[in-house]
C-alpha cells in the first residue's frame, strides 16, 4: 500500500485518483480535528473542504520530504484559526454540546461514556498549546516529532507541553481517576 506521501507525489505528477484516495484517508482525521477546533459541524465541513483545496493549490510546494499528515493538519489549523478570528474569540472556548453530534453519540453508553466525556472536556479546558499536543497525540496518534512540525516547535518543547498537560489533567480528573489520585 502506498504511503500518504507517495500518494501526494503521485497526485502532483497528475494522477487524479491519488487525490481521491488521499481524501478518503485524511478526511476523517481532519474532520475530527476541525470539529474539535470549531465546534460547529457546518464550519468543520467547510474547513475540511478548504483544507483540501489548499492542499491542491500548494501541491507543487510539496517535495515529499516532510510527512503529509502534519502538513495537512497545519493547513487545517491555520484555516480554523482564521474562522475563529472571524467569529470572534468568545466562541473559541465555548463548549456547546448540542453542536457536537459525534460526542453526543457516546452519551448513552453509561459510566464509561461519561468518564470519556469528562476526560475530553478536561482536555478541552487545557491551555491551547497543551491541548493541541495532547489531542494530536492521543486522539490523532501523531508522534511528538510530527506534532512539532504541526505546531512549529521542537519535539523537546512538545514533550514539555505534554508533560504539563498531563499534570494538569491529573489534577482536573482527580475524582475520575481515584486509584491514581492516591498515588499521585
Amino acid at each position: 500500500m502506498q504511503t500518504d506521501e507517495q500518494l501526494m507525489l503521485a497526485y502532483v505528477r497528475g494522477q487524479e485518483g491519488a487525490y481521491r484516495e488521499l481524501f478518503a484517508r485524511l478526511a476523517p482525521v481532519l474532520l475530527r480535528i476541525a470539529l474539535r477546533q470549531l465546534r460547529r459541524p457546518a464550519d468543520a465541513q467547510d474547513i475540511l473542504q478548504q483544507t483540501f483545496l489548499q492542499i491542491h493549490r500548494a501541491r507543487f510546494d510539496y517535495d515529499g520530504r516532510s510527512k503529509l499528515r502534519p502538513w495537512a493538519i497545519t493547513i487545517l489549523l491555520n484555516l480554523a484559526r482564521d474562522v475563529l478570528r472571524r467569529r470572534g474569540r468568545w466562541l473559541e472556548s465555548e463548549l456547546d454540546a448540542e453542536r457536537l453530534p459525534a460526542h453526543d453519540a457516546a452519551a448513552g453508553r453509561g459510566e464509561r461514556a461519561e468518564t470519556s466525556a469528562r476526560v475530553r472536556a478536561a482536555v478541552a479546558c487545557l491551555p491551547t498549546p497543551q491541548r493541541e499536543v495532547i489531542e494530536l497525540h492521543w486522539f490523532e496518534e501523531l508522534s511528538f516529532e510530527d506534532i512539532g512540525a504541526v505546531v512549529g516547535a521542537q519535539p523537546g518543547t512538545v514533550r514539555v507541553r505534554a508533560h504539563r498537560g498531563y499534570q494538569t489533567l491529573r489534577k482536573a480528573l482527580g475524582d475520575v481517576l481515584p486509584a491514581t489520585s492516591a498515588t499521585a
Binding site: F23, A24, A27, P28, L31, R32, L35, R36, P41, A44, Q45, P101, A102, H103, A105, A106, R112, T115, S116, V119, R120, V123, I134, W138, F139, Y166, L169, R170, L173, V176, L177, A179, T180
Partner: peptide, 18 residues
C-alpha cells in the same frame, strides 16, 4: 490511569457525508 483514560476517550467518528 491517565493513559487508559486518554486512550479510551478518543472521540467517535464525526457524523458527516464524506
Amino acid at each position: 490511569q491517565l493513559a487508559r483514560a486518554l486512550g479510551s476517550s478518543r472521540p467517535d467518528e464525526p457524523v458527516a457525508d464524506l
